[in-house]
């Protein structure tokens, strides 16, 4: 091969190319949309579950429980807003949104936010049982709920705390580690580039 850069271009265009599978593309698009709807449904249902309980069972709930659920709802609502704020780099994260440098920077920032979200999920695993316990203690000593009903609720809440929270902690911890690893690998790719051209 001669040393003409034009030869590179000619050679580049000689490579054999693959074809786009249009049917597969349409399937991928449908799955992608279904996933988005599912995530949306999950987000919305986690937000509206408490108001629905308060609306559907007002007579079954004591005034204390009504106030308590409202307090927890406000807490969940604020937390959801915080998580949405943390996801701001990936929300509306379109591939045509900017040049490649901006895109890489947003990706890097989103990884950092994902690490933070996973960390806060781990904190939540400790806070949630505390909220449950606080509810049971206040309901017991304030005599706001019938003892037998409170015992049932206590078993349920402690069961959730004992089973779901450790699982959630393990899941969040794994996500935290995964995103830390990905961030390091991603930064290494682009730092190599900076040192090479700088």
């Amino acid at each position: 091969m001669s040393n003409k850069p034009n030869d590179l271009e000619a050679l580049w265009h000689q490579q054999t190319v693959s074809t786009v599978d249009f049917e597969q593309l349409q399937k991928q698009w449908k799955i992608l949309r279904l996933k988005q709807y599912f995530y949306l449904l999950m987000d919305v249902s986690s937000l509206i579950a408490l108001p629905i309980i308060i609306y559907l069972f007002p007579k079954e709930l004591s005034t204390f429980e009504l106030v308590w659920f409202s307090f927890v709802f406000v807490l969940v609502f604020v937390m959801s807003l915080c998580i949405i704020w943390m996801r701001r780099y990936s929300l509306g994260f379109k591939v045509d949104a900017g040049n490649t440098n901006e895109f890489v920077e947003r990706f890097r920032l989103q990884y950092k936010q994902n690490i933070r979200i996973a960390y806060w999920n781990k904190i939540l695993c400790f806070v949630t049982p505390l909220i449950f316990m606080l509810y049971l203690v206040v309901a017991y000593f304030g005599e706001y709920v019938q003892p037998d009903v409170l015992l049932k609720k206590g078993k349920l809440l402690m069961g959730i705390s004992a089973v779901c929270m450790p699982l959630l902690w393990i899941w969040a911890s794994k996500r935290e580690q995964k995103f830390k690893k990905r961030l390091a690998e991603f930064e290494a790719q682009w730092d190599v580039q900076n040192s090479a051209v700088g």
Binding site: V95, N99, T100, F103, V104, F107, R182, E185, F186, Q189
Partner: peptide, 18 residues
């Protein structure tokens, strides 16, 4: 435009598979 989208998408690929 097509190349910008394609390279940005490839960046995503690198981020997940790097």
């Amino acid at each position: 435009y097509v190349l910008r989208v394609a390279h940005n998408k490839a960046v995503t690929h690198v981020a997940y598979h790097a």
